[in-house]
Design a protein around this nucleic acid. Structure first.
Lengths: 266, 266
DNA sequence: AGAGATTGGATCAGATTCGTTCAAATCCGG
DNA sequence: CCGGATTTGAACGAATCTGATCCAATCTCT
């Protein structure tokens, strides 16, 4: 039975109906099943079938009670989930890196989720002096009375909560500490550590320059990757702390350039 | 939010509600369960379930009474501050002080729970340049792309998450902005604004010195109180933003010294 | 440190929604 | 004109969502 509508209109084809549903969802962002059924003059069962078909084509997302535009809700979620994914590796790397710190040390810590995790491990140490341009690192150490935390000045880069710019670099100029613990977005033997942002790269260089030894914290997802701007060359890196899923060949290359390897077992 | 159904009372999908919750937490840094339940028009039980789901995805952190941004940034500290101390007074004072800021301004903001609340109100403004020595203020503005945030350098004072010391003062030396918004622990006509900590006082002085006009944010519990170290004298204060429970006689005295009063009605 | 108050977790009940099966109607080819 | 295929709608059981309540856990204040 196809629509023996009282006023005798022609039957509405399924494709038309689905198009109509799609338009409604696109226009309103989110529409309930009931509204859709009423709008296209069909039963809820039929609309449900249409929604299932449209969802399988990726044209919308179904929810209890209706449908919404796709991608509306998951945009940033996927990023955060990705970050949370490699947390086991990050944690192991942070543990291993913390063993490179001794009581009484003066160190520099750069921004990044791994270095933040690393900073949390330092609260057990005594009489540390820590310089950082990362608000997250500073926060992680704020409640440790035996650790003196100094922040560089600078312009706040919102997404990563780190300080950049000439003021940040200037405040690191006269500084000299034992080790710098920094991270980045990619690490290869040819181009060393790299990040996609110029300002961040400049500050990372300044951080590395302030230390006698440079320690890079990088999980396996970053090894072999090359981002836009080089921060420190492989020759400048003294230690690399990573996890055992890192590609062996790249590690060997780095080792050949004088980088001492510390591989965390997951 | 395309929910302009007047008659519809379309059930809000769970995903929509969670998205809304996430936005609220991101916008405010920390939100209580009660506020969230009221904001999304659901029961606290439902919100609690949503928070649990969002936390499992790493999108926020749950705490007693509410939720905060992930990453420990404004961990329990700022959350407790908000819930316990975000009295109506602070909120009203922050609102009133925000009206003293215009688009395009360059301002300085000092540390304190009231100034932090004030900073949150600024996210609506465009093209602001903000200098602060408070990590909490910086964090409150971190997600506002149209606001340039600069932090002073300096040594981190853990309990209040502010930067102090000579480095902080030095980085303010060559600076000149229109207004400084600062707070303190006590305010009298005789001794002006005062705090119990010497280092904090020194930086507050530097903050005030960097601005053409000094605006003090102080709720009634601080008016008439005198703390150990004077930061700025009453004569240096151009504006006072307070609430209507402040003792009238002190206000009159301050007014006599040239302080313009802005009294928030609770 | 303990009492009171607040908050969180778990279970249960009510309601809504979803999926599936089945019957009826239409379209098409013969 | 008739039978198969497809589509639509109805009905029923299953799953999900929401909110209330009770009890344990946590926090605050004295």
């Amino acid at each position: 039975m196809v629509d023996t509508d009282s006023d005798g209109r022609r039957p509405v084809f399924a494709a038309e109906r689905r198009q109509r549903i799609l338009e409604l969802v696109r226009a309103n962002g989110a529409v309930s099943l009931r509204e859709l059924a009423q709008a296209v003059q069909s039963s809820e069962v039929t609309v449900r079938r249409d929604l299932r078909a449209l969802e399988s084509e990726g044209l919308l997302n179904r929810h209890h009670g209706g449908a919404t535009l796709p991608g509306d809700l998951n945009r940033e979620a996927s990023y955060v989930q990705k970050v949370a994914l490699s947390s086991a590796e990050k944690s192991a790397i942070a543990d291993l890196a913390a063993s490179l710190v001794e009581d009484g040390d003066a160190i520099v810590i750069g921004p990044g989720t791994t270095t933040q995790e690393f900073a949390r491990r330092l609260t057990r140490h005594a009489e540390l002096a820590v310089v950082t341009n990362s608000l997250l690192v500073a926060q992680a150490l704020a409640n440790s009375p035996r650790i003196e935390v100094m922040l560089t000045g600078g312009t706040l880069r919102g997404p990563i909560l780190a300080l950049v710019g000439s003021a940040a670099e200037r405040s690191l100029a006269g500084l000299r500490v034992r080790r710098a613990f920094i991270s980045g977005n990619g690490l290869t033997a040819e181009r060393g550590l790299s990040t996609p942002n110029m300002q961040v790269a400049c500050v990372d260089q300044a951080l590395a320059a302030a230390a006698e030894e440079v320690v890079v914290l990088a999980d396996h997802t970053k090894i072999g990757i090359d981002a836009m701007v080089q921060t420190v060359s492989a020759e400048q890196i003294d230690h690399l702390v990573t996890d055992d899923a890192a590609p062996r060949d790249v590690l060997d290359e780095l080792s050949g350039k004088g980088v001492r390897l510390h591989v965390a077992q997951i």
